[in-house]
Nucleic acid binder design. Structure first.
Lengths: 231, 231
DNA sequence: CGATATTTGTCCGTATGTATG
DNA sequence: ACATACATACGGACAAATATC
């Protein structure tokens, strides 16, 4: 008789009640057991629906205190971090890659500080360019720790970008991203075909394997670049 | 005797096997039933652990085909969309707000197009400034649809920012964010105390309630601004 | 191409753990 | 200390997708 009820149905119905203000911000909503009865589902199913809403920031849950509609929905947006190649190909454009330079060296203080390395640490410095339909899309300026990733000594990066090689060969546990606007340096301007001082969109990425730093990458885009995300 | 095993334990152990390359990219991992036996847990518990890893992008699952370690872990980062005020106060700085202008009008074509409105649509145009420790932090240039949110006619926004008022009073179901770098316009430069043409970090936000557009906001930050996110 | 077997997806009902008012 | 409400575990069942024969 009673048809099965999906946690999605329950989740969406509760989200609707919140959006339509039938459940007001700050208000206590019914307990799991009551909701389970109302929707004709098991408590575990209701729980799953509630968990998703909590994760989305629409409700706040506390043991014993119950579940409330969030007053200031701390919503979080997600954006994917794809390979540059995939990002470009998904736009229906052709992808090209150029290696600009590759040197083993020690790092400038700023780089060492951000990666938490000491003065003697050896790093590989790789500069490269990613193009979409033959025009510059992203200038990648990357430092790779040779202590953490000795294997990169044997990779010449002439055909495979550091981005792609690392994703393929080097697992990481933590990553940190910083995005900001900056004026193109002389070098960045030259590589990207811009005037020096033109606004550029910069993403910096640090990845680590447990405590050990793997790499610091500075990814510079021309001002036409858009970073888009939903919800 | 057999103690209960948490899905977190199982999840973390499997994540470790992937990070340590005991399970290689592209490889098929054991089925849920086998894992349940190995970890001494119920299949539902293993399933929850696997779901979380799949959501994090470490594995890819398909019915009948089984579960594989992702070749190109499409990891997604999350960033929170807080109120500007909270964002500033969390940095230990004092928050100030200034209303710059507030007009009821029709919108320029670009705005109408992005919000999907017709020519006769009435909008409220609000310009305001958010300051951190008395220096300009964000210039907010916002259009609000009066069809969707007639209540804003009665709000003067002299002490409460549109950002805050909308979050508090107007629920939304969808939001879209776009981030990019741009050169400061004459107006933006004047408001933020910059030279015209200085690189600025721009976030554009569109929110909707189901199909109806609520608002389009252009949020302009000085070049010192950093948007940071983890994992 | 169609039937089938396999694997994940999700639900149920129950039981117990845990944080907290 | 206690009751309450959420958190999560178990085992069983069926549904849905799909690789393979």
């Amino acid at each position: 008789m009673s048809e099965r009820v999906s946690f999605r149905t329950i989740r969406d119905e509760m989200a609707r009640r919140i959006a339509e203000r039938r459940w007001l911000p700050g208000a206590l909503i019914p307990g799991e057991e009551a909701l389970a009865r109302e929707f004709g589902a098991a408590r575990a199913t209701v729980n799953r629906a509630l968990q998703e809403l909590a994760r989305a920031g629409l409700i706040e849950r506390r043991r014993r205190a119950g579940t409330r509609v969030a007053r200031h929905p701390v919503r979080e947006a997600r954006f994917v971090i794809p390979l540059v190649r995939q990002e470009i190909e998904r736009q229906g454009k052709s992808y090209q890659y150029q290696l600009l330079s590759r040197h083993e060296t020690t790092a400038p203080d700023i780089v060492r500080a951000r990666l938490g390395l000491d003065e003697k640490a050896r790093l590989l410095h790789v500069r490269s360019l990613h193009l979409a339909d033959r025009s510059p899309y992203q200038f990648e300026d990357r430092w790779i720790s040779l202590d953490t990733v000795p294997a990169v000594r044997d990779v010449d990066f002439s055909t495979v970008s550091p981005n792609e090689w690392l994703v393929e060969h080097e697992p990481f546990t933590d990553a940190e991203f910083t995005f900001f606007a900056a004026a193109a340096s002389a070098e960045e301007a030259a590589v990207l075909g811009l005037q020096e001082g033109t606004p550029v969109f910069v993403g910096e990425r640090i990845t680590r394997l447990r405590n050990k730093s793997i790499t610091l990458a500075r990814l510079v885009h021309p001002p036409s670049h858009r970073m888009v995300t939903q919800l």
